[in-house]
Design a protein around this nucleic acid. Structure first.
Length: 807
RNA sequence: GGGAGUUUAGCUCAGUUGGUAGAGCAUCUGCCUUACAAGCAGGCGGUCAUAGGUUCGAGUCCUAUAGCUCCCACCA
């Protein structure tokens, strides 16, 4: 028996535990076709916000849908506890920097901290009803993951896609590590535009360079103008004297200089921006690197050595002003590239690092992108844009502590990298001995370990390999190559999706998945992205689940179209809550009338039952069409609308027949029972995608013919009562209008109708006649008169109420 | 500057081959109706961002403009 009121808190806890106990979501390979989902391992950095809930719920609903459709769903879960985000979290909690704590102690702290948060994450995702196979959950720093990540590195290095080279790289002097292009975030900052007077060495001719970065004056290696710039082209070939610094550098020509920008004269430094690097390479310019790794000017730079970058900027400007070299200073707002993890402006550095080749295979990556179905399809453009624009090979070295170590040592003499043997993985070169005793190149016997660790994405990009247990004896390589679906939010197309494609291409020469489903963002208010700093407590996931239930939160997460941003809305949560409540109540009603029901083959349905069965079948087809395109939200809209209509119209009509078999006949009652029995089951299945908890509670109370509703299969209805479907809709319209008459008279809906006279087309008359008892009972009609008309389907002539009886 | 999405009722959003504008919330009016008052019935409310175009017919297709959002480039 279902309870009078549904207690979500209590029941959700109960079923969460039950599913764990019964291994409802455990993946066991069998004869069924596998549907595999590459789930994003959330970054374990302390907070799960409403955006996670949104994105994970949508993906999770796909898993449930596919499970219902009979697939053996492979739906793993992982935690990305590896790398810089975790390190930053620990640094914040400890109030100390990693190098102050020490490598080993710091790593230990990272493990402890991420373990604690993971527990919380897991708890929350489970209470949201995420149907992943939790027994199979992975971490991105566990020994098995490190092994796969290192194996991936070795394989790429062996195939020549991964190289060690001294090269310019993006550098964050807050996090003290190099970073990749994909980790950049542009920010608008205020700065000053300084117009600095230079002179030519040859004839002392003054000219002006406008710069936002005067502290780079000591790093100038050349000055460029556009060869077509009439005003400046005579300078080409001469030399420029740098004010204050007193160095002399050549003035050169390059098409890339925009004569309209600034003064049309550009200083090229090592390194101020990407163009500097290009010119440095193109013209083989000298290296004049003046920054230290922690964001200061190198000690050997006269006058400015030891200063922080910003201090140096100030002092250089002061010195320029003192010497009369500043023509003017303008305020300027400009976009700068910052590190997404800390928000600090990035610099450039030159050091030996590991890179993965991107630039030579862009075409292949584009082709891979084309071979994947993107949902919604326009998200493919984002991928294409990124691949076309990416300008650097992927730097995977990070000068940090907590992450996957490179399985590499270097010969102390000649620097030759010594790779670990694959059989020895996972290795930590700081602890483990090199794989050789003698350097094969120079014969030296001393080696130094690689101290860098890998970029987080170097590991996240192999989630398909982790999922397939790559390299292990018992693996899923044959069933997960490629995986069916990748799900994530749009912000990580350029990182997670892109890098995974890169790795899959290098490892297997094929796409990692057949489909990609991209979710949108959560907005706090129209057009206002949720910011971490705002920390809106009314959107705290734990609180929301407590207040509204996990099922209602999921309802909110399902609203709207795929890939479209959503506004956080309590109204939507409330709407979900009402829908859930309705589902509970109608289930109670149906349960009440199934006490004596026995399911057996039956075809002699009443007209109204045929109507609702037929319409359900139509809705179901449409529902599956949406769901097959991952439009889970649109599918829900359709289902919800139909369900509400089912409650307000069909149930209202059939209830009389269910209550009073003596009046309507036992078979007519059975027809109704069979109908509600069939449809409630199907409603529960379809709603189970969205509301896993309450549907399980109802299923166990009413049907309990399976371990769980989540292991049942959705078999589409095959009744095709097309005629009844159409005529039934017209009948309902008449009922609705007749109810309206009662409402307009301010009387109760059970007020009898003394006389209802209708003009109807012949087939509708037939329909009403065959459903006459239901029709009359619903509206409490005492006398029904009909005559045939030709044009419109129907016309209502009189609705005469019997008001005396009511009074 | 390049790429993309979005703009529909006061609010949150649907609207799938072009054919008389939809839902929920809010608001108003009724109704204790043997599942549900967290309900039921009904009302009010929209020149579908703007301007052109194609068409017998455009929220839907095309072009341009504007607002909002995201991604990328631009740091001289």
């Amino acid at each position: 028996m279902l309870d009078k009121k549904y207690n979500a808190q209590e029941k959700e806890q109960k079923w969460k535990e039950y599913w764990q106990q019964e291994n409802v979501y455990k993946f066991v390979p069998d004869q069924r076709e596998v549907y595999s989902i590459d789930t994003p391992p959330p970054t374990v950095n302390g907070k799960i916000h409403i955006g996670h809930i949104f994105s994970y719920s949508q993906a999770e609903m796909v898993a449930r849908y596919k499970r219902l459709r009979g697939y053996n769903v492979f739906y793993p879960f992982g935690f990305d506890d590896n790398g810089l985000p975790s390190e930053r979290l620990v640094e914040k909690e400890q109030g100390k920097k990693a190098h102050e704590i020490g490598r080993e102690a710091f790593s230990k702290l990272c493990y402890q901290t991420t373990d604690a948060y993971e527990k919380e994450f897991k708890e929350l995702f489970q209470s949201l009803g995420v149907s992943a196979d939790w027994s199979n959950a992975y971490k991105t720093v566990s020994p098995s993951t490190i092994k796969i990540s290192q194996a991936s590195f070795l394989e790429l290095a062996k195939k020549g896609y991964c190289y060690h080279k001294e090269s310019p790289a993006l550098w964050c002097n807050e996090c003290l590590t190099s970073i990749a292009q994909a980790e950049l975030e542009t920010k608008t900052l205020k700065t000053t535009f300084n117009y600095v007077t230079f002179t030519t060495e040859e004839d002392n001719e003054p000219f002006t360079i406008a710069t936002t970065r005067p502290e780079l004056l000591p790093a100038i290696v050349s000055v460029f103008v556009n060869p077509k710039d009439k005003k400046h082209k005579h300078l080409i070939g001469k030399h420029a004297r740098i004010p204050v610094i007193n160095e002399v550098v050549p003035i050169m020509a390059d098409e890339k200089v925009d004569a309209e920008k600034g003064t049309g004269v550009v200083m090229c430094c090592t390194f101020g921006d990407q163009t500097d690097i290009e010119w440095w390479k193109k013209y083989n310019l000298p290296l004049r690197f003046i920054f230290t790794k922690d964001g200061r000017i190198k000690e050997d730079v006269p006058n400015y050595g030891g200063l922080k970058i910003k201090e140096a900027r100030k002092k250089v400007v002061e010195d320029l002003q003192a010497g009369g070299y500043i023509e003017k200073i303008e305020e300027l707002e400009h976009e700068v590239q910052t590190h997404e993890r800390c928000g600090k402006e990035v610099e450039y550095t030159v050091m030996k690092q590991w890179f993965i080749d991107i630039m030579n295979h862009k075409e292949d990556f584009l082709k891979m992108g084309e071979s994947i179905q993107w949902y919604p399809s326009h998200m493919h453009n984002r991928y294409v844009e990124w691949v076309k624009n990416v300008a650097w090979d992927w730097c995977i070295s990070r000068q940090r502590y907590f992450g996957v170590p490179f399985p590499v040592w270097y010969c102390e003499e000649c620097g030759e990298p010594i790779f670990a043997n694959e059989a020895d993985l996972p290795v930590n070169p700081l602890v483990d001995k090199p794989s050789v005793k003698v350097c094969p190149k120079c014969g030296c016997t001393h080696f130094v370990p690689e101290t860098d660790v890998m970029d987080t994405w170097a590991t996240s990009s192999v989630t398909p390999l982790i999922n397939m247990k790559y390299g292990e004896e018992h693996n899923y390589e044959n069933i997960l190559k490629p995986m069916s679906l990748r799900t994530n939010a749009s912000e990580i197309i350029r990182t997670w999706d892109f890098y995974t494609i890169v790795k899959s291409f290098y490892h297997f020469g094929q796409r990692p998945w057949n489909n990609v489903m991209i979710s949108g963002f959560v907005m706090a208010d129209k057009g206002e992205k949720i910011s971490k700093s705002k920390g809106n407590s009314k959107m705290d996931p734990v609180e929301l689940i407590k207040t509204y239930s996990a099922d209602a939160v999921r309802y909110w997460a399902a609203s709207g179209r795929l890939g479209t941003d959503i506004t956080f809305s309590e109204e939507t949560l409330l709407r979900g809550k009402k829908l859930i409540n309705k589902l509970w109540n109608v289930s109670k009603f149906i349960e009440m009338h199934l006490a004596d029901y026995e399911d057996k083959p039956f075809t002699n349905f009443e007209f109204v039952d045929k109507w609702v069965l037929g319409s359900f079948g139509q809705m179901e087809q449409q529902f599956m069409k949406y769901a097959d395109e991952y439009e889970i939200g649109l599918a829900l809209n359709l289902l919800e609308k139909f369900f509400w209509n089912f409650c307000d119209n069909y149930i209202e009509i059939v209830k009389h027949r269910l209550y009073r078999p003596e009046e309507f006949g036992a078979e007519a009652r059975y027809s109704g029972q069979k109908t509600v029995y069939t449809l409630l089951y199907k409603f529960l299945q379809m709603f189970s995608i969205y509301f896993p908890f309450i549907t399980e509670e109802i299923f166990q109370g009413v049907y309990h013919n399976h371990v769980s509703i989540h292991t049942t299969q959705m078999v589409p209805l095959t009744y095709a009562f097309n005629n009844e479907t159409m005529l039934g809709d017209q009948m309902v319209e008449i009922i609705s209008q007749a109810r309206g008459v009662k409402t307009n008279h301010n009387v109760s809906l059970k007020t009898p109708i003394r006389l209802l006279s209708l003009g109807v087309r012949a087939e509708l008359e037939q329909a009403i006649l065959s459903a006459q008892k239901d029709f009359k009972a619903t509206l409490f009609i005492e006398n029904l008169q009909m005559k045939q008309i030709e044009n419109a389907p129907y016309e209502i002539y009189t609705v005469e109420l019997n008001l005396d009886e009511n009074a």
